[in-house]
């Protein structure tokens, strides 16, 4: 399904250009007459990519978030026709301040005002990454991927919603743990998270039984080539700095 393999460029005065590439197929052989391949018209067959490249992009569009999503994540927000199926299936939609489909709508206008609203929304932090939306999206818009990019953009521009501080803290603590130990060291990670958020007493009741059940250790795990992972993080950071002077 999806787009046809080829599109035929049509001239105003050569309207007879057949839009279809296969006609006349002989039975009994899996090869088809070669003449069937070429259209009889003055039209030329173009691949969809080439066809797309004929369109001009507006200069302003190049710097929009929508353009960035397309470039970085191969997510085209123009594909979204606002059916709302993503929102309908989203497990976190009830908690969100802006519905997932509306996040895409905010990006479609390409106006700075709307982009800001998307980047400052709580929704981008409440996305669980369960992939339900993209699994059902009739237009195959990769919304989880868009959310990833929006979150990172929100952090880079320092506009992340303050109500999401604890979520950001959790993610940062988690990554920090990996950077230091190569693997996630839960005790250290949770300690880090609590320090970052001040949620010192949350889940305190669970901790002792966790130890009792052998589910949490006080010492970092061995192995995991922590130096190597540390170097990976360093190289990724350096590369990021290089690309954003």
């Amino acid at each position: 399904m999806g787009q046809p393999d080829t599109v035929t460029q049509m001239h105003d005065t050569a309207p007879d250009a057949p839009r279809v590439r296969c006609f006349a197929v002989k039975k009994g052989t899996n090869r088809r007459p070669i003449g069937a391949y070429f259209s009889q018209s003055e039209g030329r067959t173009l691949t969809p990519e080439k066809y797309m490249s004929c369109h001009h992009e507006s200069p302003s569009a190049r710097h929009s978030l929508a353009a960035r999503l397309k470039e970085v994540g191969e997510v085209d927000v123009a594909d979204c026709y606002q059916c709302g199926k993503c929102t309908a299936g989203c497990p976190a939609a009830e908690e969100m301040d802006v519905a997932p489909s509306q996040i895409l709508r905010l990006l479609q206008t390409e106006s700075p005002k709307h982009e800001k609203r998307a980047l400052e929304s709580m929704s981008i932090w409440l996305c669980i990454g369960c992939e339900t939306c993209v699994t059902r999206c009739p237009q195959e818009v990769d919304l989880p991927r868009a959310m990833d990019i929006l979150r990172q953009e929100s952090l880079a521009r320092n506009v992340a919603n303050r109500a999401a501080d604890d979520i950001v803290a959790f993610h940062k603590a988690f990554l920090h743990s990996i950077e230091r130990s190569g693997r996630v060291f839960e005790f250290g990670m949770i300690g880090d998270y609590k320090l970052r958020t001040g949620h010192l007493f949350q889940d305190l009741g669970a901790a002792p039984s966790m130890f009792l059940k052998g589910k949490m250790s006080l010492l970092p795990h061995g192995g995991g080539s922590k130096r190597e992972v540390g170097r990976m993080f360093a190289r990724a950071r350096a590369a990021k700095k290089e690309s954003q002077p």
């Binding site: 669980i128 990454g129 990833d148 979150r151 990172q152 952090l155 950001v168 959790f170 993610h171 940062k172 988690f174 990554l175 990996i178 190569g182 693997r183 996630v184 192995g223 995991g224 080539s225 922590k226 190597e228 992972v229 990724a236």
Partner: peptide, 14 residues
């Protein structure tokens, strides 16, 4: 010498 897969946090912010 395996390392962490990054889990959701890496997916979310890096």
């Amino acid at each position: 010498e395996w390392n962490c897969c990054g889990s959701s946090p890496a997916h979310m912010i890096d």
